[in-house]
């Protein structure tokens, strides 16, 4: 697959890549709020069992010298972290009782 976003070993996760390979927390948080629980549960169920392998794959490279497909795989893992709260804790996309509150990440390490 020449247009694949993820390394070939993670072709089974490719279908989640266009939506969840996002470079910033701001985008990942927005994707979480805009997703249904079914959608996040499916992504979580598919990604979580592959996560340890994905971390090990990324770890072959120094953090600041990763090929693009490995960087995207790491971004997919960041999204797994993001959806873990709705899936593991809240059973809903947003933090209960957080109504009007927001907390914007205005600066974060790259990647």
């Amino acid at each position: 697959m020449p247009d694949a976003l993820l390394p070939p070993a993670f072709a089974d996760l490719e279908r989640y890549a266009p939506k969840w390979c996002l470079a910033s927390e701001h985008e990942r948080y927005a994707a979480r709020l805009a997703s249904s629980m079914d959608e996040m549960q499916e992504f979580y169920d598919a990604c979580f069992p592959r996560a340890e392998e994905a971390i090990a794959y990324c770890d072959q490279f120094p953090l600041h010298d990763m090929p693009d497909d490995a960087t995207r795989l790491l971004q997919l893992l960041y999204s797994l972290v993001m959806v873990s709260f709705p899936v593991e804790v809240w059973r809903q996309p947003y933090v209960p009782d957080s109504g009007a509150a927001y907390l914007d990440l205005v600066l974060e390490p790259v990647p």
């Binding site: 971390i55 953090l63 990763m66 990440l105």
Partner: peptide, 19 residues
């Protein structure tokens, strides 16, 4: 972080802080 694994551990702490 020197490795992606370390960086991911930082991400978890940062996302948890926000929750």
């Amino acid at each position: 972080a020197a490795t992606p694994r370390e960086r991911l551990a930082h991400e978890v702490a940062a996302v948890t802080f926000k929750e």
